[in-house]
């Protein structure tokens, strides 16, 4: 995974002629795309700020007659806080567990000479191919037989399992970039495998750890299928399912529904505002593999 900071360093060196010349054709396309992206978002925000009556009477494009924050209050009254907390628990647990499992595995895959390890690596590579939907029936069966049905744990377990292959792949390619000489140097100072991983490999693969965490966290935050099948009660509901349910509850109260949609994306939006580079690099990193 190309290091983001390195890329930044090239920036100054590279010429600024072509890339900074105005490009009218692409510019027009970009503006059209901008409109396409922004209109639904604009409508979302605008609708969330008006009353149902003003939405229905004014039609989809009218400006709100009065701005109201009532819809947001309404969403919270319907227990959205709990959904957000549940989602946060699932997100943190999934990301932490994935990294905890994937990093030692990736380290061993790169450093170990055992045939068994390379065999297992092949298994993970093959695992990239398993679409989560295809296994949902037995996953459901397993979870119910383990008496985990309708719990947040039930969501975390398969989410982590299906996040592992890509995480290990990303981490392994990053660890391969750590020069062999560094391992040898540290070994001379008397380091075992644990110390090598902890004080050498870990600090040097911070960028891909970010990538993997962002990838797993986003996956868990936005997960829909596992919560849909593996949970049922209001107590265990995550935000995506909360939205899905609100759809019927709000019926023609589109402003209320849009307020819920906005609130569901709000935490990620805050991360985006304050750690944009980090988030974007994380997403691009996964794609780069």
């Amino acid at each position: 995974m190309a290091d983001v900071r390195l890329r930044g360093a090239h920036r100054a060196v590279r010429g600024r002629r072509l890339t900074e010349r105005p490009n009218w054709g692409a510019g027009v396309a970009a503006v059209v795309w901008l409109a396409f992206v922004i209109i639904p978002i604009y409508l979302m925000v605008k609708d969330a700020l008006q009353t149902t009556d003003s939405y229905l009477d004014g039609g989809p494009l009218s400006l709100p007659r009065h701005v109201t924050g009532h819809n947001f209050v309404d969403v919270f009254d319907r227990g959205f806080t709990r959904y957000l907390i549940n989602t946060a628990i699932v997100t943190v647990a999934s990301a932490a567990l994935t990294v905890l499992l994937a990093f030692p595995a990736a380290y061993a895959i790169v450093r170990s000479r055992s045939r068994a390890v390379s065999g297992i690596f092949r298994l993970f590579l093959a695992g990239l191919a398993i679409p989560a939907q295809a296994t949902i029936i037995p996953v459901y069966l397993l979870i119910t037989r383990m008496h985990l049905y309708d719990s947040l744990t039930a969501i975390v377990l398969p989410t982590v399992a299906f996040g592992l292959p890509l995480s290990i792949l990303v981490l392994a390619s990053a660890l391969r970039d750590v020069p062999r000489e560094l391992y040898e140097a540290m070994t001379l100072e008397g380091g075992g495998s644990v110390r090598l991983m902890w004080s050498l490999a870990l600090p040097l693969s911070r960028a891909s750890l970010t990538t993997v965490s962002v990838y797993c966290a986003l996956n868990a935050w936005n997960g829909f299928l596992f919560p849909l099948i593996l949970t049922q009660s209001d107590e265990q509901r995550v935000q995506t399912l909360g939205l899905y349910n609100f759809q019927g509850q709000f019926s023609s109260n589109i402003p209320g529904l849009m307020a819920a949609v906005l609130l569901s994306a709000f935490p990620i939006f805050v991360v985006y505002l304050f750690a944009r580079r980090w988030l974007v690099a994380g997403m691009a990193g996964v794609g780069g593999k």
């Binding site: 170990s112 068994a116 390890v117």
Partner: peptide
Amino acid sequence: RAARPGVLWV
């Protein structure tokens, strides 16, 4: 000569 992790890690 650096230490190599075993299969247990995976």
